[in-house]
Design a protein around this nucleic acid. Structure first.
Lengths: 328, 328
DNA sequence: TTGTATGCGTTATCAA
DNA sequence: TTGATAACGCATACAA
């Protein structure tokens, strides 16, 4: 890998000073078309393009955003990453993807992002311990930080999420009118689940109707763990159940697998099932899952606007869409 | 966002020169424990940590790897991204995720990665036009480039992939012993499909047994497009079919949906189905798909070793594992 | 419009 | 072991 050409070399080749070269590459700089063309020709011959690293050091802007992800098991992350990277790139930025599964030291990851001088940090659905995050991000020198697709636990870190109150009320009203009488809720991992607020919205709705809600938990967002939780719940259950809302689609799919294949019950006739996220799988005939679509595009748009300071940096809830299919 | 503390400021606070500060942060540098501790204390007080950007400019090493992805629709990308980011990070590197769906200019994306001085470029299952890629990467100054999970079309760019010949032979031998007589193959998008080599391996096997293979194509890797292709094929089909191999699992799932729910046929009794990739979904009872698992961990490991120059930079095929389930 | 000096925060190299 | 000088490639401010 030979060295890249520098502005200086182009300058020599074009017979100008290096600052003229810089100007030729700075939109709106004052330079005659003559010298610009001279420079551009020399640049092309030397295959020159500005070194963004050096530029970043000088401008204190990297146009890089660190995106922290801790759970690559949930397929709903993929379309979000698509949207996020596409939107960032359309604004001249780029995503640095940082894996913070349990094998990695979260604090170090945070510090490393800061050291790399990223322009912003996005916590995408992740479950940092509140204190860890606060201690790091509170420092004045830490890049602007955002929580995406989850409520933020920290005042100074805005959360961009789906309006969960409205979502749960839409979902529950739909269910209530279907006349389900014995609802249950399957939560995910405790720390994440709490910040999602889905369980609370569900339970509160039915309590307001005087209906108790059975509850159980899956410790990971995966179909197999959801299936295991469902299995255990149904095995040990004495009272009847006619409706199960799962914290997300991937759990719901696992639940449906167990209900239909292991207990030979029908969905929704014997037990109705609802999910959340509207992953591709939810539309498959095998699941045909009633679920809720988060406003991905709007969420990402709003967050990127905050990153670009085109909009005040504050928590916001965006409305999503109920997707009614056959499962409930 | 206040300015970060610099080595100079720490130096003043500690009463030493900035080079001593640098040394305190360089493992193995010659410095007395006394001054190191003095520096570390001052650094902690000022919340100092080295600026990696400046370091990169000086060392010509960013410890960043650009990862190009063009299809966020296929869930098999997610565990790969998990593995890739985790492995890179365990080596002190980080992935810059670059979305090159059709809305983006591929050449610009390549140039941009070069401008950012990434240490390497990974094309993850993407379909660059051969010429585009060659023209860019052939330049001496372009970072070392690799194609992951796909054959490379360019000699100078090594491809790290699953040993497709062996894979197809394992799969086909399994099928042959199940006594299927009328096989068909569902390809994906032409440009990608060709580089995958799965279709060729399948067709060649059956031809060698004197059995003709029916063929059709889905123009996108998604369950719904796979379902549509399956539907059309079955509708217009006169001759019998008892086995369908799909280029990957997501297509296979779409195919199964149509076969069982729309045509009310049984899998595998009426039509057997095989996929490729072993996505999570393949294990769901609703699909119970026989498929093939790429050696993700080994592939990523080998590629990262090449990036780190611990291993010669050359194309390699790694053996995967046949996963036999109920669908074939 | 163009050229000059200076700074961004490190690392590499040499001298003390 | 420590301090000093130069360099990385570009941007900013100012002078010509």
């Amino acid at each position: 890998m030979r060295k890249r050409a520098t502005a200086n070399e182009v300058a020599k080749a074009a017979g100008v000073s290096k600052w003229t070269v810089i100007r030729a590459f700075s939109p709106g700089a004052s330079i005659t078309t003559a010298s610009r063309e001279k420079v551009l020709a020399a640049a092309k011959a030397l295959n020159y393009s500005p070194n963004l690293l050096a530029r970043s050091l000088a401008t204190n802007l990297t146009h890089q955003v660190a995106v922290f992800v801790d759970d690559f098991g949930n397929p709903h992350k993929l379309p979000f990453l698509d949207e996020l990277t596409a939107t960032l790139q359309s604004e001249g930025m780029v995503a640095v993807l940082i894996n913070i599964n349990m094998n990695f030291d979260h604090i170090r990851a945070l510090v490393n992002a800061e050291q790399r001088q990223v322009d912003a940090v996005v916590l995408f659905g992740t479950s940092f311990g509140g204190d860890t995050l606060r201690d790091q991000t509170v420092a004045e020198s830490f890049p602007p930080t955002f929580v995406l697709a989850r409520d933020s636990q920290i005042d100074s870190v805005p959360g961009i999420s789906c309006d969960i109150k409205n979502a749960m009320s839409e979902i529950c009203n739909h269910l209530f009118h279907q006349n389900y009488k014995h609802p249950a809720f399957m939560s995910g991992p405790l720390s994440i689940s709490t910040a999602l607020g889905r369980r609370d919205g569900f339970v509160q709705f039915w309590q307001s109707k005087g209906v108790p809600v059975a509850e159980f938990r899956a410790d990971k967002y995966s179909a197999s763990v959801g299936a295991a939780a469902m299995r255990e719940f149904l095995q040990n259950r004495s009272k009847p159940i006619d409706l199960i809302m799962c914290e997300n689609d991937i759990l719901a799919c696992g639940a449906i697998d167990v209900i239909t294949h292991e207990f030979c019950l029908r969905v929704p006739e014997d037990i109705a099932v609802v999910g959340f996220d509207n992953i591709d799988l939810a539309a498959a005939p095998a699941y045909n899952l009633t679920t809720y679509q988060q406003p991905r595009e709007a969420m990402v748009r709003v967050m990127v606007d905050m990153i670009l300071k085109r909009r005040p940096k504050e928590s916001i809830n965006l409305p999503g869409t109920l997707v009614v299919r056959g499962s409930a």
